[in-house]
Amino acid sequence: MSKSAILRSSIAKKYWMALTGLFLCTFLIGHLIGNLQLIFIHGEEGRRAFNEYAYFMQHNIFIKVLSYVTYISILFHAIDGLMLAVQNKKARPQKYAYNNAGANSSTASRQMALLGSIVLIFIVTHMVNFWAKMHFEHIPLHTYEVTLPQQTNPEMVYYTHNHSLIPIQVDKVVVVRDETNLYLENTDLKLGEGYKDLHSVVMAFFGQSKNGFVTNSLALWATILYVISMAVMAFHLWHGFASAFQSLGLRHKRYTPIIAVTGKLFAIVVPFLFAIIPVLIFIGYVK
């Protein structure tokens, strides 16, 4: 078995497309659950939950490893897919004068490269709008006062510093709002960090500005394009989900119908839930 066959053979390419595709399906579920916080937790509590979640997603080592696997999967899926599309075009240099392809296959299944390319463009713009801002740009921090639990000693609060507990007088716990870190007033004792206010970035991007964020003047278009992109992704998944199992040779009289139904449900439910979030923000249901 030559080593090149693992990448170049037509069937091996299918395995890679299937494996990266299915991994990206699990990524979608994780991403969706994170996003749904935007519409299920309202007000200041929602802002805090989402920003803490965003911070966790950026700093947790396990998530970090997963994120690199995700980047590689997207790149591999896209590059391999485009290479396949070019090869497949070459396999039929002369087109039919009349081809009634609708009689034997779904449009989605024949347009995977086109659908995938649109999804790829969406991913790039999406990463520019949110991921790059979160990683490389200066976003004002979301900071808040530390509220002390009433059950503990109301006089004192303990804060860990260099592995030792430092008692702090409650009346001195004045959290300073500064753009990067939180310090005890008039000391260099760092109490904590604020969270990059991604929640307000998202809200402003889809038309609800607050906390000093400027409203996106193209919020309507951002919402429309987001919804269209999710519809395109739905068609891509409509064929892709079940197709991945077939590519891996996972086919069985009993399980294949279940996989097919699951795939269609996945293709409808996941993009739908993604798409309603910007719509609900735009119309002001979520504030």
Binding site: M1, A5, R8, S9, S10, I11, K13, K14, L84, Q87, N88, K90, A91, R92, A101, A103, N104, S105, S106, S109, R110, M112, H239, S243, Q246, S247
Partner: peptide
């Protein structure tokens, strides 16, 4: 291995599971 290798060398395209063939 040999049949797939020959299939690829002949210049056929790659399967994307459209199912048109079986229909």
């Amino acid at each position: 291995l040999n049949m797939v290798k020959q299939m690829d060398e002949e210049g056929f395209g790659n399967c994307t599971n459209t199912g048109a063939c079986a229909v």
